[in-house]
Design a protein around this nucleic acid. Structure first.
Lengths: 133, 133
DNA sequence: CATTTACCTATCAAGTCAATAGGTTTTACG
DNA sequence: CGTAAAACCTATTGACTTGATAGGTAAATG
């Protein structure tokens, strides 16, 4: 199951996409609209900034803004940034050390197949798809 | 990510399927072959018994046995029994209380679509498919 | 009656989750 | 220059989950 980090990040991104204004949007406004603690959102938005998905500007009139068009974000990259990996099992995650039983594992082909399916699905979905619906 | 409970359960089921003997297989043997703590497997196998996927017999000569042919088990039911649900989000899980924002949720259709995809995948995969590979 | 096995209850250390708390720095505006 | 608004930063917390371990009881076989 996906945690709130990935799901809230998605909601923040959708919220920003819906404003289609060139202004910076204060986190306070997003938190109120989405009914999520602003303090908790800070943690999540920080990662979005570090990942280059949004830009933040301090001070009065500041806030956050998308760095690209909504159609240029995939849901997969947003979730993967916050959740770490979409992999169903640890041995397939990017930073995994190779499993010694890999060559005799009866389940690895299935996990790999599912992982590809999942990636195709979430990288195929664009942020703009969610805004419109 | 799936936890060890679901993954170990799958390995136990595969191990049992591979014995294709009509004898009961002691958990000790399975634990040694799979290199998993027998004590920990007890917890997992108990749930397989309660779910009716295997039968257990106590005493000398006892152990565990599948209740059906390997081709009659789907991977989905095994994982779902141990992991609780395949749902990517809490609001889609079986015992979920209805979300008040359901009607305005921009992500629910995507989660639902993914959930169906996932279920199709794991219920389509049979235990026999894993044993052969 | 001794051995082997499943079966049962409880406990535990470490980690993760979902926040909260309390600040500092940056910027715009009057 | 001062003040308000905003991002940004570090730390902490309580509850829960994970992945086991411990120590027994009950059942079946020879």
């Amino acid at each position: 199951m996906f945690s709130t980090k990935g799901r809230y990040a998605l909601r923040v991104m959708i919220d920003l996409a819906q404003q289609h204004s060139d202004d910076y949007i204060p986190l306070k406004d997003i938190a109120e609209r989405q009914d999520i603690s602003k303090k908790y959102l800070e943690i999540i938005v920080k990662e979005l900034v570090h990942g280059g998905l949004v830009t933040g500007v301090s001070g009065k009139g500041g806030g956050y803004k998308l760095t690209r068009e909504p159609s240029e974000y995939s849901v997969g990259e947003i979730i993967e940034l916050l959740e770490g990996s979409l992999s169903p099992v640890a041995c397939l995650a990017k930073d995994a050390n190779e499993c010694p039983k890999e060559s005799v594992c009866h389940t690895l082909p299935m996990w790999t197949e599912f992982y590809l399916l999942e990636r195709d699905f979430f990288y195929g979905k664009k942020l703009s798809d969610l805004v419109e619906s």
